Simulated scan of single mutants.
Amino acid sequence: MFFLKKEKESEKTFHHELKKTRESFFSKIKNLFLRKSKIETNVIDHMEDLLLSADIGTTTTIKILNNLEKRIQKEKYKTTQDLYDHLKKEIENLFIDIQNECLEKKIKYHKKPYVIMMVGVNGVGKTTTIGKLAFFLRKKGFDLIIGASDTFRAAAIDQLEIWANKAQVPLIKQHMHADPASVAYDTLQSAKSRKKDVVLIDTAGRLQNRIGLMEELSKISRVMKKIIPESPHEIMLVLDASTGQNAFEQVKKFTDFVKISSIVLTKIEGTAKGGVVIGIMDQFKIPIQYIGTGEKIQDLKEFDGKKFIDCFFEEKNNER
């Protein structure tokens, strides 16, 4: 009974956190369908406008609408409710083939320490996310250490130290403008000697200097391999959901020079652009591991694609 209650509370909270996206987009889709019972020729055009307005992206929008039009021709749908149900199914299908292996399981069954490199441009909430993730994993019973390899900004080191203290996780740091790879090296050495389960490595987010950033990330990886040959085991990209299409561009640029294992989507509770999740999953086939849902240290949740879609399409009488 306790676990059922916790699951219902989690779904309720998830539903609340995605309220802005649902009300701005998916409720409009449903209202469009509910206004008329029969499928009209212009309903696809209206759907295209709404899909694009949610920052799902042109490529994914075209894919969804093409599949819907084929269904209409093949199965002769007569009502908009039929079309509405299939729209949900089409969006669900975009998530099916993307394996989102639980990070906790990967850590548990991998040789320790498990090294996670955190990447993302400045301003997306990367430092905050590292603190939240450290807190989340510590609550799951893992022993962690954090490395402050974003030495480009003094504020980054100070902010990370604040979050590390909140999470009660030790931090390895040096001075501003220190060699980021040196910090990573010291962190992994410390992690091995202290038998830590997980290492979180922060990195700089100067994407405007792509060549310099690429070289820096490559150097950090090379140096870490001297301590742990297969590291980093995970490269996690942090994105700000509220930036919409800009988030697509960030994924494109980072995947040009580093292999992204998973994504953390932040600030999703404050945006109407949650449809960006659908486009990213479809176009890049990179699993979304967590979503940030607030400013508090506990405001990080595991991403569940089915719940994500269900919360948009389910009936909520009190929101009409």
Rank of each mutant, 00 (worst) to 15 (best):
E315L: 12
I309W: 08
E75L: 08
D82G: 02
G244W: 03
K140Y: 06
D240L: 01
K173Y: 06
D82P: 00
M117C: 09
Q174E: 14
E104K: 12
L103G: 03
E234A: 01
L34C: 01
I116P: 01
G57N: 09
L239F: 02
F308T: 02
R138Y: 07
E48S: 02
L51W: 02
Q81F: 03
F142M: 09
F308L: 08
S231E: 05
K36L: 13
P113K: 01
K192I: 13
G205P: 11
F308V: 07
E216P: 07
S190Q: 15
F136M: 14
E315H: 08
K259M: 14
D310Q: 13
G147P: 07
K301C: 07
I278G: 00
S182Q: 06
E90A: 10
K196D: 04
K106Q: 11
K259Y: 11
K132G: 04
D150H: 10
R138G: 13
A184S: 07
I107Y: 07
T79D: 06
E69D: 15
M47I: 07
K38G: 06
S261K: 03
K126V: 06
M224Q: 12
S53A: 10
D49N: 11
G274R: 02
K306C: 05
L32D: 00
R210D: 09
K252S: 03
L217P: 06
N317Q: 12
L52C: 09
I39G: 02
K108P: 05
T80M: 04
F14W: 11
E249G: 11
R35W: 03
Q159Y: 02
K30L: 00
F135S: 15
F248D: 05
H86A: 06
K316A: 05
D186M: 08
F2K: 12
E302K: 15
A191Q: 08
K301H: 14
V198T: 09
T255S: 08
Q81R: 02
T203C: 15
E40K: 10
V115M: 04
T203D: 14
Y185Q: 01
S182M: 06
I130R: 05
D299L: 08
K225M: 12
N165G: 15
Q174H: 15
K30D: 01
K105R: 06
E90F: 08
I288M: 01
L68P: 04
F3R: 13
I278Q: 02
A154Q: 13
E23L: 12
K192E: 09
N66C: 05
M214K: 13
T60Q: 00
I211V: 14
R206L: 10
K252V: 12
E90M: 10
A241T: 03
E11F: 03
K6L: 04
K301G: 09
G125Q: 10
N318Y: 09
F3S: 12
S27D: 06
E302D: 13
